[in-house]
Amino acid sequence: MNDALDVTLRLLIVFVVFLTFPLIIGQTEHKVMAHMQGRLGPMYAGGFHGWAQLIADGVKFAQKEDVVPTGADRRIFQLAPAVALLPYLLVLLAIPIGPGEGAVGQVIDAGIFFVLAVMGVGVLGSLMAGWASANKFSLLGGLRTAAQLLAYELPMLLTAASVAMAAGTVSLPGILDAFEWWWLPWQIVGAIVFFVAGLAELQRPPFDMPVADSEIIFGAYTEYTGLRFALFLLAEYAGIVVLCGLTTVLFLGGWHGPWGADGLGWVWTLLKTAVLAFLVIWLRVTYPRLREDQLQKLSWTLLVPLSLAQIALTGVVKVVIN
């Protein structure tokens, strides 16, 4: 296969994953939440258990008028959804799904740094939306988004650094090549901190103070309608895919499975990612929203010390086994 075709094919696959996986997770969320709350959830669209509900939603969003408030900063208001969404597409490129070079969109030498850096850029979209809407609820939402990002980026980076120390490399496929089963108990604290911090960065419940719909009316996205609003929602679900995929790759061993599964590595990756995504939905249904000061306290007094302790533990064990 020649190079151009190879690259095009990879990009196409990543793009298809980017378009379908968030929808699958969204549909699962509809159904899982419904059953956990004693409801049925969508049942009509598409016939079988409402499988086409999100497609119908998408069509509805596309039909709506695209409104820009008079007082808003037009260009930034319109640009914000793209800034929020595109980084997740780029991150998906770097997540390996199976062993070998064939199973990753693009091998990146400093993979962890690439992934975390680009994910951080996505938050700029929410900030831009919050500011440019010329709406005080939006501005509050933007402020809370920024405060949350600043608080939770640090523990996320520190725990990712712990894995990098354990593996002796910062490339994502390299980390998976070095993975051993006993990393699971060794890095478990880091895994939990990473996952929780990631949830907070995505502003998923119970960390959804920046978009708290019952008090600041969806925060930065208050003024958005139609397709642009749908893009923000898509960004949230793409974020879940990326976070679950990353946690799988960094902490759960990605394509490694308990039974030597040759050629089935990608099944393991997808399975672990799906279980984590289910956990994300479960947490949403279970916990009430954290207050802003509780949010900050959780990060600075619990997650940061825990991640520092994890780094110390990683360092000590690494020195001992060497």
Binding site: L116, A117, G120, V123, W131, A146, L149, E153
Partner: peptide, 9 residues
């Protein structure tokens, strides 16, 4: 990711 976010904040 951080300095500009802090600036905007």
């Amino acid at each position: 990711g951080s300095v500009v976010v802090l600036l905007l904040f």
